[in-house]
Design a protein around this nucleic acid. Structure first.
Lengths: 122, 122
DNA sequence: ATTATTACTATACAAAAGGATACTAGTGTA
DNA sequence: TACACTAGTATCCTTTTGTATAGTAATAAT
């Protein structure tokens, strides 16, 4: 039986190893070619499998299925099956996933700034 | 000749495609197994190749060399060669890279919160 | 009976990322 | 002469990630 310690922001920030581990947690949740597009597609409304597929035109069903499973396992999306004919399955972001929006905004901001500052080096 | 348009935070945020692209810019800079550990290792002081290698015990010189090149190309680290014998090479984070610290803090914070909220689902 | 629909799965393959191990150049020391 | 040091490279191999293409189950409409 493992003892799992809950770590605080302060503790994690003070220790480089914990820091890297915790940041990696976040990174892993959104890593992979299609996670971000999928999250983006679900940011404003819940959607069905085929809707997402139409939304992200180049994704294959295999990848969409796999990435959605990953996201579900990581507590990022909720999957709901409706017993219609043919069945419909709805995917929606969890609250936690929605709160990732703020982080993504920060990344967006830094990305734009960084592009500026590296362009101006020429 | 390509016209390159500089995009604003507002513009990027309003357009899902631009949003995903810009966030991906940031993601790409820190993606790969060793980027974060390397950045972490350089956060507080400049270091030499062998120092970093000692710091991140499991990295091979091949990977360290490759990742440092990537980081340099992306404007994240500055490489300085000193003509000593044997030569010494120093790596340090650029200002832009240091400013990534804030983003990483956000990611750390979210990662910890998300872990809490998914644990409490059981 | 054939076709369409939704939400996938199966198989095979290609490409990218990463690891293991050995090696190099240039110089200094024992 | 032999060895050690720094900062890497070179070669080969394994693992992970992603792609292409075809197929499935359950049901309903034509």
């Amino acid at each position: 039986m493992e003892v799992e310690k809950t770590i605080s922001f302060k503790e994690a920030k003070a220790c480089p190893v914990q820091f890297v581990l915790a940041v990696n947690d976040t990174l892993n949740v959104i890593s992979g070619k299609w996670k971000l597009p999928i999250i983006g597609s679900l940011l404003f409304e819940k959607k069905r499998f085929s809707d997402i597929q139409r939304n992200i035109s180049k994704i294959t069903p295999r990848m969409l299925s796999k990435e959605l499973k990953d996201l579900e396992m990581n507590g990022m999306v909720k999957r709901t099956v409706y017993d219609t004919t043919p069945i419909t399955v709805e995917y929606e972001l969890t609250e936690s996933a929605k709160s990732l929006g703020d982080v993504l905004d920060k990344m967006l901001e830094w990305g734009l700034q960084h592009r500026q500052s590296t362009l101006s080096q020429n």
